[in-house]
Nucleic acid binder design. Structure first.
Lengths: 113, 113
DNA sequence: CTATATATATCGAATATCTATATAAAAGGG
DNA sequence: CCCTTTTATATAGATATTCGATATATATAG
């Protein structure tokens, strides 16, 4: 199954996926932590509602881009840590490349004369 | 009614509106012509399905961003020419500014170290 | 006269996102 | 020790958007 190509029809979705995958490139993280990290790193420009975040993570896990593992944290607390997969890394590269092309085309279209 | 602000939740919609508004800045055009112009100007990078194009135009007209006028063209042929309104121009500026900020934040988030 | 290009329009299906709500444990203050 | 806030995950319902398909009709080219 080849990696999905970049599609202009879903810029928001692609952007959300990229934010999450990029943040997972270096470190395993759980959902809540991912949202905090992204918000902090972008100086609050990017923000995830948790009603949006978790469905996206589940979808990405189903598609094999990330792999979640429940981990015991303290006596009762459990957290689901996500790691990026090889497929996820490929997807990341493909989508980021797509975004760069998009931004070029966008800026070229709207550049002042 | 103030102009809608730029929202990351709908990048595709905002991009589509900008492409159309920008193309109408200089010249009145009908729908089919708009799609051809945008495709040509972007060297086929941007493309409108006509099942997407017309609903967007209708929506934008309903919101007062553009104004459509049916014009007799030949003995039977009629075309609907769209012109950008003042509200449309304000919307264009607001959204384009939003996009520039978005691109800055995006590039800053994904820039290689 | 027939096929293709021009031109507008709408419907149904699929998808995505938001807001709100539910649940539960850990931490901190009084 | 209790209560509130923060941490943490999850889902349901509503709304919106886009796509692909389909419908209709005129103009043009062969």
């Amino acid at each position: 199954m080849p990696d999905k190509i970049f599609e202009i029809q879903n810029l928001t979705k692609s952007c959300n996926e990229l934010l999450l995958l990029q943040t997972l490139l270096n470190e395993k993280m759980h959902g809540y932590q991912l949202a905090l990290e992204i918000e902090e790193k972008s100086k609050a420009y990017f923000h995830f509602n948790h009603g949006t975040l978790y469905p996206i993570l589940h979808k990405m896990e189903k598609e094999g881009l990330i792999k979640g593992t429940w981990q015991q944290e303290g006596p009762k607390r459990k957290r689901k840590y996500y790691a990026i997969t090889t497929k996820g890394k490929i997807h990341f590269e493909t989508q980021l490349k797509g975004w760069k092309e998009f931004i070029n085309s966008f800026q070229s279209f709207f550049k002042e004369v």
